[in-house]
């Protein structure tokens, strides 16, 4: 239903008014409409219900709907704000807004913290960090001995865990990122500033009167 192009217009569950989404995010109304073009494509790539399922997200990221990846799973779970197993349009826009160049750095820092807090304890713990390093090595077909992995994790923890209590809290994380700004590199997608250029067909499907 949500996959049929039509001007009058049965939207899928989770569709939200672009005007409201623009007011609550870093996007303009036109940006949100352009994102809807992308959303329609992603949300109908496998299961044609106008919602992004995990397999569709994996297909878009990896060109492979079966590719398991810890970090893609975390991103999917964070985008799925209602935690109902799918990404709706409103969730898609609100979450992507964090990656907009104009979004305050504090929001990006907070999102990255939640991303790495695998077990939702409110802290990034040493075991979580090691698990993520091992996942990255596995994904990259890289081999490092356990001693080397331990050294990397220990060194990073000694720099980030300034209170020395064996876990990284949000305040320590924010300070660590300020000292290592490259850690936020993939939290900004410059392309989002020009999203209407990527999906010019949004003009044809716009439901918003230019005068609004």
């Amino acid at each position: 239903m949500g996959c049929v192009r039509s001007r009058h217009i049965k939207h899928p569950p989770g569709y939200e008014d672009p005007v409201i989404l623009a007011a609550e995010t870093s996007f303009t109304v036109s940006d949100v409409e352009a994102l809807y073009e992308l959303f329609k494509k992603l949300s109908c790539s496998i299961i044609k219900d106008g919602l992004i399922h995990k397999e569709e997200f994996q297909l878009a990221l990896f060109r492979n709907s079966n590719k398991e990846n810890l970090f893609a799973d975390r991103i999917f779970d964070l985008f799925d704000l209602k935690r109902n197993g799918v990404i709706e349009f409103g969730e898609f826009v609100r979450s992507l807004s964090i990656f907009h160049p104009n979004t305050p750095e504090a929001e990006k820092i907070a999102f990255a913290f939640r991303l790495y807090d695998l077990r939702h304890t409110g802290f990034i713990e040493r075991e979580e960090l090691k698990e993520m390093v091992l996942a990255l090595l596995n994904e990259s077909d890289l081999y490092l001995s356990d001693d080397v992995v331990e050294t990397i994790v220990d060194k990073t923890f000694s720099q980030a865990d300034t209170k020395g209590d064996g876990k990284i809290d949000p305040e320590e994380w924010a300070e660590f990122v300020k000292r290592n700004p490259s850690l936020l590199r993939n939290m900004t997608l410059p392309y989002l500033k020009d999203i209407t250029m990527g999906f010019p067909s949004f003009v044809m499907n716009s439901e918003v009167n230019d005068a609004e």
């Binding site: 992308l38 878009a60 991103i75 960090l129 060194k155 990073t156 993939n186 999203i195």
Partner: peptide
């Protein structure tokens, strides 16, 4: 790699490269 920050290593994951979503 032994000198690398663990989070820098992690941030190279393909799963965190959302730019891929916009590739045609």
């Amino acid at each position: 790699p032994a000198l690398m920050n663990a989070f820098e290593l992690i941030s190279t994951s393909q799963g965190l490269n959302l730019g891929t979503l916009f590739e045609k």
